[in-house]
Write a protein that binds this DNA or RNA. Structure first.
Lengths: 221, 221
DNA sequence: GGACTCCAATGAACATACTTATAATAGAAG
DNA sequence: CTTCTATTATAAGTATGTTCATTGGAGTCC
């Protein structure tokens, strides 16, 4: 996993570098917009961390430049206003983190984005249920089952990590992204609705005290 | 999707290879004209990236050789003059990109060409409705149904991506291109008129929270 | 092992907030 | 002028988050 860190403040840049290297990522650094474009083009990246306030080329221009490549981007910026956040995410960023940030939060968000943008199966079949990630159609025994956006995203996350116990936090962060401000019973309800609609009472297992796990027969792997 | 990269400069060739592999394409490489002809004939390709300055066989000859096969070609060349560009496109290339290029631009153009040259049916028939992409004539039960430009483009996009949930954004960007400045109810109205004119109320499905999907019987695939 | 307690999870109902459909109107293009 | 397209307002439909009463699991103590 290689990460491109675009950040003009060398203190912050170094901090991020140390943190990520420590966590096993390879990092390279750009300190202004021009450098960033060059480095970005030089080879493919798994993730870009982008500061919005940069010398030479604005962060937004850079984001526009990066977006078509589909490389995941996390914006790291002091401009903590809602507008910037929305604008950034609308322009194709995958997440947004405000300075000053907690190292743990940075790491968590990076992991979440990497997981979220990992390639997914187009079609998944199990026990008469078929989940099509392209058409976003879910069928059970041939009948179409209408799932809402949140339900679909949640199911999709569980399936893409099948036989893995996912914590409530992970699930919230994947499905609800930045609108997650702590525990409620929302997740439970969505789980309930999915189980009900698909007859998956025994497939989506509750992992008590942790979260949930989508269990298939070939579990042990 | 497999792409043939014809490029004698190994640095550039490798850069393209990394980029495209990272984006999920399969790549193979030819470093001179002879190799290129051989490899090109060995099996079918979805796309050819062609450098015009090559050892042994000139890029133009190669283009002439490739053109009859209808395989999409993007010329990648340092000869950035208008003449070359025109000559290349006249000879049947689908796009032209100049060195040095930005990786993001390369990817964007590749995607555009693939989308553009994707086998669109000249004629599409479904439930008594016939859509002719060449004459732009639409008939229902033998009667001609007059569609406006926007309506036709929209319908065409939906049909060419049938059974795929297309986001509102994608639809806006395809039909309205750069005149898209955010959400209004324009798209809804066009969808409504198409449904009405063609009796497609149940064929063009609303994907709540996402956009629309043109659904045919063989949906599950 | 059985009874007890604490805490987590479930499930139903409801209010709110979004999203989409529809129709009417205004504006632009030919 | 006529036709097409975009905008706006309003209505209808759908999803979502929260609350709360209830159920169930895990550990502890006797």
């Amino acid at each position: 996993m290689n990460i491109l860190i675009i950040e003009d403040d060398k203190t912050i840049s170094a901090l991020m570098g140390r943190t990520l290297t420590g966590a096993g990522y390879d990092c390279e650094f750009a300190f202004d917009g021009e450098e960033a474009e060059e480095l970005f083009d030089s080879h493919p990246w798994d993730l870009v961390l982008l500061d919005l306030m940069l010398p030479k080329v604005s962060g937004y221009d850079l984001l526009e430049y990066i977006a078509p490549s589909k490389t995941p981007v996390i914006i790291v910026s002091a401009m903590g206003q809602v507008n910037d956040r929305i604008r950034g995410l609308k322009m194709g960023a995958d997440d947004y983190i405000c300075k000053p940030f907690q190292v743990a939060e940075l790491l968590a968000r990076i992991e979440a984005v990497i997981r979220r943008t990992a390639p997914t199966d187009d079609v998944f079949d199990y026990k008469g249920v078929s989940v099509n990630n392209v058409s976003r159609v879910v069928t059970k025994d041939g009948e179409t089952v209408p799932l809402t956006v949140k339900e679909f995203d949640l199911l999709s996350m569980l399936i893409n990590n099948r036989n893995v116990a996912l914590s409530r936090k992970q699930l919230y962060e994947y499905v609800w992204k930045e609108e997650y401000y702590g525990e409620t019973r929302t997740l439970d309800n969505h789980i309930k609705r999915i189980r009900q609609k698909l007859g998956y009472e025994d497939v989506i297992k509750t992992v008590f005290g942790i979260g949930y796990r989508f269990e298939t027969e070939e579990a042990g792997c």
